[in-house]
Amino acid sequence: MGKGARKKGPKQDRVPKVRDVFVGQPFEGLAAEPELIALREFVPSATAKLTLVDGSDVTLGTVLPMAAAAFVRSDGERFLGLQVQTRSSDISRDLGRSLRWLLSAEPGDVLSVPDTTTPADPDEHNRLQDILTPSAELEVTIHSDFAWWLPEDADATGDVAVSLERANAAIMPTDRLGAGAYWVLAGEKAHLRWVRPEPENLLLQALARLSAAGTLGLGEGTRYAGSFRAHGLLVPVWDLDPEAHAREWDEPKDQLGARLDESLKSLEAEPLNATERRARDGLIGRQLTIR
């Protein structure tokens, strides 16, 4: 062996590293995508049954006690939490792993945080798209408090009682006006927040066409406030009369939806004109992104 040469040790197997890539549209491919985004980002207290491909079901909740990722209630009902304090580059994978944990958990078990540290594996089938029935819609139940954390007639104690009190105090009155569409009373203002499934560029063009025509509102005293991006989809927001009851906006919202659908359809044959393009540029300038 020559001078300066290094003796080679035994050959070691190298485990290929898998790049952890940010997934900007984590719920893509699921029919419930707009609903999942709404429940994760701005709906305070709501539940929905999740249909799994194996025929079993669990209850999806917006926020769980102590912002847990999942838990099994003392009566055996299984809950998966959407609004958690930690996340990886792929929310769908985080939720899928928590869901896998939940299926083998026992009453009283709590998963405080989702598994966000295990590297992604291309052969791992733990995303929501692998576990849920893709075509299933969500039947959402809106709650005025978080009493659903507990079995019927049960009393909260200890940390759960403290968490319940804090969560109840933070709730803003909310009502569902349709798939991905929610009325919320935020202090002295009321809003319609509507998660739309269309690609952002196409939706902006349709909104711009309505804006240029003066038909983007929901009636007198309402206005289009802007939009924000959430997990790959655009969420338009309208300011509403805070004195009106949530159910008074059912019909105006449906009429707006019909106009928006017609506007989307018209884009197939007629591109935006100069006035509509200026309206689109104005809408683009009133956006922000939520991750």
Rank of each mutant, 00 (worst) to 15 (best):
19 R>N: 08
10 P>L: 15
7 K>M: 14
11 K>G: 04
29 G>C: 01
30 L>I: 04
33 E>T: 06
5 A>H: 10
8 K>V: 12
11 K>P: 00
11 K>M: 08
35 E>F: 01
35 E>Y: 01
19 R>W: 08
14 R>I: 15
26 P>Q: 00
16 P>D: 06
20 D>T: 07
16 P>Q: 05
27 F>D: 05
7 K>V: 15
27 F>Q: 03
31 A>Q: 05
3 K>P: 04
17 K>F: 10
16 P>L: 07
5 A>N: 08
34 P>E: 06
34 P>C: 08
16 P>T: 04
14 R>T: 14
33 E>C: 08
20 D>N: 10
23 V>T: 11
15 V>F: 06
22 F>H: 13
30 L>H: 01
29 G>S: 02
24 G>L: 06
21 V>E: 14
30 L>M: 02
27 F>T: 05
25 Q>D: 15
30 L>D: 02
15 V>S: 08
6 R>T: 13
31 A>K: 01
9 G>D: 05
9 G>K: 11
34 P>Y: 09
19 R>C: 08
35 E>I: 03
22 F>N: 07
21 V>R: 15
35 E>G: 05
25 Q>V: 04
30 L>A: 02
35 E>P: 00
19 R>M: 12
11 K>A: 15
5 A>Y: 07
30 L>G: 01
16 P>K: 01
30 L>C: 03
12 Q>I: 13
11 K>W: 09
13 D>P: 02
12 Q>R: 15
11 K>R: 15
8 K>M: 11
21 V>Q: 11
10 P>I: 09
31 A>Y: 03
20 D>S: 12
17 K>R: 14
18 V>F: 13
26 P>N: 00
20 D>P: 01
14 R>K: 11
23 V>N: 10
26 P>Y: 00
28 E>M: 09
13 D>K: 08
21 V>T: 14
18 V>P: 02
34 P>F: 10
25 Q>S: 09
12 Q>A: 13
8 K>A: 11
13 D>L: 12
26 P>L: 00
20 D>K: 04
19 R>D: 07
33 E>W: 02
12 Q>P: 02
27 F>V: 07
21 V>Y: 05
8 K>S: 09
31 A>L: 03
5 A>R: 11
26 P>F: 00
35 E>Q: 14
24 G>Q: 03
18 V>M: 05
